[in-house]
């Protein structure tokens, strides 16, 4: 739970837009995304593959790959605006106050150095420790993320680790400097459930004891259910629904969220086919007018084809869907328009 003593959020994201200029026109990959994270809070971010989760995270840590750029909105960390800082200044903040765990572990690891060297260097940049103290701290961190035989493993190179072990080394690297905010992009995808539980316990302890805020991007609803306080659901570059984790998982209000929760495979009953939401998310160049989910939505009405819904109160969550507006979805759609 949020251990906030004052009311100021640790992270504020307002109307964020991320664009890619291309020869074929500008792609709007993140479109008007807003959310806050309080100190000690974990915000889970879920959504369709390609929805813009990683780009949102990269925009916050100031590491969008060019030509991608923040084209609008504001990002504040502890009240201070960070989206318009010069590169050098942002680099310092990133090292000391924001811990980044990337979706691809190999972007954070240098294949030519042993993992120990990489950890020790990072620790020494941020803390006044001697080489042997830094090494002891590095071993301790590797143990915390569950690497067996950490004393021996510290001298090994990234390619000598398994997929899940590399992922844990990246987590250890992100925790080195004791950050205020952790942006974790799929930190547990390559991990078995047992190690996952250990990493989750570690993240929660940091939130509780140090008031660290976490933005946790993951596809794993089990991890979300156990870790997050609130969840944001993204679809086609926008937030489709946001609210307390229990409400979003058990009483979803947006049709996309409902479909997503219904697709989770369960144990106990083996079905012939897993439940899926039919169709695919539109490409960025082909986002339809109105609600971006309308081609796949079974509840849509005429209004959904022309007018785009913003987040609005929907039960205990906020959802971007006309079903929750007093005006409704508009006139029913005739068969011919559906086929067109």
């Amino acid at each position: 739970m949020a251990a906030a003593s004052n009311n100021q959020p640790l992270l504020e994201v307002r109307n964020l837009r991320v664009e890619f200029p291309t020869r074929r026109g500008t792609l709007l990959a993140v479109d008007d995304v807003s959310f806050d994270i309080a100190p000690g809070e974990v915000l889970g971010v879920v959504g369709e593959s390609g929805a813009g989760k990683s780009l949102t995270g990269n925009a916050i840590i100031g590491l969008l790959e060019p030509p991608g750029r923040v084209a609008g909105g504001e990002i504040r960390l502890e009240g201070r605006r960070i989206d318009n800082l010069p590169y050098e200044e942002m680099r310092k903040i990133r090292g000391a106050r924001i811990g980044a765990i990337f979706q691809d572990p190999l972007t954070s690891l240098n294949p030519l150095y042993s993992v120990g060297r990489q950890l020790i260097e990072t620790i020494q940049t941020h803390m006044p420790l001697s080489a042997s103290q830094a090494k002891a701290r590095a071993i301790e961190l590797l143990k915390e993320v569950g690497i067996p035989g950490a004393e021996m493993r510290i001298d090994h190179y990234p390619h000598q680790f398994s997929g899940g072990m590399r992922q844990r080394v990246v987590i250890a690297l992100a925790l080195c400097a004791g950050p205020r905010l952790i942006v974790a992009d799929e930190p547990t995808t390559a991990l078995d459930v047992s190690i996952q539980a250990q990493i989750i316990a570690l993240l929660k302890r940091l939130c509780r004891e140090h008031g660290t805020a976490v933005m946790l991007v993951t596809h794993d609803m089990g991890v979300i259910a156990e870790t997050a306080d609130r969840v944001a659901v993204m679809y086609a570059g926008r937030v489709a629904e946001i609210g307390p984790v229990r409400e979003v998982v058990k009483h979803a209000k947006h049709p996309y969220t409902k479909g997503l929760m219904g697709s989770i495979p369960s144990l106990g009953v083996r079905t012939d086919r897993l439940t899926q939401i039919d169709g695919a998310m539109p490409r960025l160049t082909e986002i339809p007018p109105g609600c971006a989910f309308n081609p796949r939505c079974t509840f849509k009405g005429q209004r959904c084809l022309v007018e785009r819904p913003n987040l609005m109160p929907a039960g205990a969550t906020r959802a971007a869907c006309w079903l929750h507006d007093s005006g409704g979805v508009g006139a029913p759609i005739l068969k011919e328009t559906v086929d067109a």
Partner: peptide
Amino acid sequence: DEPTSALDVSVQAQILNLMV
């Protein structure tokens, strides 16, 4: 080897159904 670990549950279901 972990073919669907980076996919949301709905796309994962589509890919696994395809494999079956």
